Simulated assay, not measured.
Amino acid sequence: MSRVLASASVVGFSGSRSVPCPESAAAVRRALAAVPASVSVHVGCAPGVDELVRSLCPRARVFWVAEVGFSGRGAFARRSQLCVESIAVPGGVWVSFPAGACPAGLLPSASAARCFSGFGSGSWASLAFAAGLGIACLLFLPPGVTAPAGWGFVAGGGGWFFRPAAVVAQLFLF
């Protein structure tokens, strides 16, 4: 985890609206400590994990629901979409701290509409979108929760899982 974050160009954080366990809070602190001061940190405006990140990293760029130009429930999904898209650059890393298991039927996709379509977990939807965009992803899960099968995560120990960035090839026709 530390090696991935130390070499990142920008890092985004998301997670549960309540910090699920002491292990998750400690993992957030360790992850932030591994991000070099020169690297931009992006986070949403939600309570819980987002709030913990904001309190520990005052320099973080915060994506506020009030600034997305939407109202109602769609504003929260749009906020999360914009935050994830801001990390979709070479060297970007998305770090997620969900409280529970991935909702059934949710899969990584480059389509925000597919990820944020009512599965009930913004943390997992954001992670699915980041993975679908090919962003390198770190995932910390509380005890007893497993990484979703088929998402390409590799266990890193201590509750951490890693999914490397996807290499996107551009095909040219001449």
Rank of each mutant, 00 (worst) to 15 (best):
G69V: 03
G157D: 10
A27K: 03
A25D: 11
V10Q: 08
E67C: 10
A149G: 02
P58W: 10
A169K: 12
C115P: 07
S111A: 13
S24N: 00
W124E: 06
P164E: 12
R78T: 03
L173E: 14
P108G: 10
R163H: 14
P164Y: 09
L5P: 05
S80D: 15
L141V: 06
P58T: 15
D50I: 04
F116A: 06
V28T: 09
W151R: 11
R3L: 11
V4R: 03
A27S: 02
R3H: 12
V35F: 01
R114N: 10
P143L: 05
A113C: 07
V28L: 09
G150I: 03
V43H: 04
P36V: 03
S111L: 15
E67H: 14
V4P: 00
W94F: 15
V10G: 08
D50K: 10
G158T: 12
A110H: 14
L82N: 02
A165W: 09
G15T: 02
R54P: 12
G159T: 05
P108H: 09
A26Q: 12
G74C: 01
F153M: 04
A166Y: 00
D50L: 05
A60N: 08
C57G: 07
L107K: 15
S7E: 15
P47Y: 02
R73K: 03
A8K: 03
G159I: 06
A112E: 05
F153E: 01
A60C: 14
G48Q: 03
S80N: 15
A128F: 06
F70K: 06
L173Y: 11
V4H: 02
V89H: 12
M1W: 00
A165Q: 06
P103H: 12
L127Q: 09
P20H: 07
R61Q: 13
S2Q: 15
F162D: 07
A165F: 02
G157V: 09
C83T: 07
A112L: 10
R163L: 08
F153P: 00
R59A: 15
F119I: 10
R30M: 05
F97E: 06
L32M: 13
G120V: 13
R163F: 11
F174D: 10
A46F: 10
G118I: 08
C45H: 08
A25W: 03
G12Q: 07
A75I: 11
G48V: 02
F76V: 13
P164F: 13
F13W: 09
G158D: 11
V145D: 04
T146K: 08
A37G: 08
G15K: 03
V4C: 04
A31T: 02
P143R: 15
G91L: 05
L106F: 13
S18G: 04
V11L: 09
L32E: 07
V35D: 04
A6T: 01
A77L: 00
C21I: 00
F116V: 05
Q81W: 01
I87K: 05
S24T: 13
F70P: 01
A34E: 08
I135N: 02
V10K: 15
V84A: 13
A110I: 04
A169F: 13
A37H: 14
F70T: 00
R163M: 08
M1G: 01
R29H: 04
A60R: 10
V89I: 12
L52Y: 05
S86C: 11
F119P: 02
G100A: 14
L171E: 14
A136L: 09
F97Q: 11
